[in-house]
């Protein structure tokens, strides 16, 4: 059976501000989907809602994994069920070494029934695997001893997210701008790594503003988000078109969604000033 992550008519609000207004998306295991759209259109919000961020309230619609209600699950249950997100802005956890964090995370995800306090993966076994994965990603082994995202450069954070993806081997992964903040070499390396780890091995939902990542991970589908809705879906040629020509055609074709998008952006600007 192929695994399916299914999002139907999803509405999400932050506070009482509606952000997503009816998103439909079916992600089959092994497929790669590109999610594009201008700033503030709601791409990260979709990812965070899939993971169950408490600040993002699902007001209607559903998310299911192989028919099971994901909205009923706590974020850690979702992770243990095989859903992953690489964050646009990962959080720092000072004082906690990357290796210790990952050992605990990997144990919990691989043994979804593990109770608090039960044994973790044996240290030696884990270290060996981590070292191999890091070598493969051409990461310095010193990285494992640093504190989680604490003082990491933008590029280091993104690479750390990829390392987590590699260790946790989820069924479905949302990659939120995992290619941003990287220099040209690092983008290529990240793109290759993701292709190696996830392309056709997971269901990937790739949020990106650049073309490199999609060159290495050609999408089966491209979705365009505007004003909290997926206004268009196409193949990889749609992604290519947007990279070359931007969102002008889309904005004109969907004036209502465009108006909503502008409204949200204007509100953001107001809030930033206030």
């Amino acid at each position: 059976m192929t695994h399916v992550l299914k999002i139907e008519d999803l509405h999400v609000s932050v506070g009482d501000k509606p952000i997503l207004r009816g998103v439909n998306l079916t992600l089959n295991h092994g497929e790669t989907h590109a999610l594009m759209g201008p700033n503030g259109s709601g791409k990260s919000t979709l990812g965070l809602a899939i993971m169950g961020h408490p600040g993002y309230e699902v007001t209607s619609g559903s998310i299911t994994l192989d028919g099971k209600d994901v909205l009923e699950m706590a974020p850690d249950e979702r992770a243990r069920a095989g859903i992953f997100m690489a964050f646009q802005r990962p959080m720092a956890i000072p004082g906690v070494k990357m290796a210790d964090f990952l050992r605990h995370a990997t144990t919990n995800v691989r043994r979804p029934d593990r109770k608090e306090g039960e044994e973790l993966i044996p240290m030696r076994e884990f270290r060996k695997e981590l070292r191999e994965k890091m070598e493969h990603l051409r990461m310095d082994s010193e990285f494992a001893r640093r504190y989680v995202n604490d003082g990491f450069s933008g590029g280091e954070m993104k690479r750390a997210e990829i390392l987590q993806l590699a260790m946790l081997q989820p069924k479905f992964a949302v990659l939120d701008e995992t290619d941003s903040g990287l220099d040209a070499d690092a983008v290529r390396l990240a793109s290759e790594s993701i292709a190696d780890i996830g392309h056709q091995k997971m269901g990937l939902l790739i949020i990106t503003h650049h073309d490199k990542l999609l060159e290495h991970n050609p999408p089966d589908f491209t979705h365009v988000m505007l004003g909290g809705r997926l206004v268009e879906t196409g193949g990889k040629e749609l992604a290519e078109e947007l990279h070359q020509h931007g969102y002008d055609r889309i904005r004109k074709a969907y004036p209502d969604a465009e108006a909503l998008n502008q409204k949200l952006l204007a509100e953001d600007a107001e809030e930033a000033l206030a």
């Binding site: 706590a74 974020p75 959080m91 720092a92 608090e116």
Partner: peptide, 25 residues
């Protein structure tokens, strides 16, 4: 921070404990 750790499979309590332990590291 708690949410981030939970997305990596930590329960809320495990996440809190880890963050506190990190604080004292």
């Amino acid at each position: 921070q708690i949410f981030y750790a939970r997305c990596r499979g930590f329960t809320r309590k495990e996440a809190t404990r880890m963050i506190v332990t990190g604080f004292f590291q």
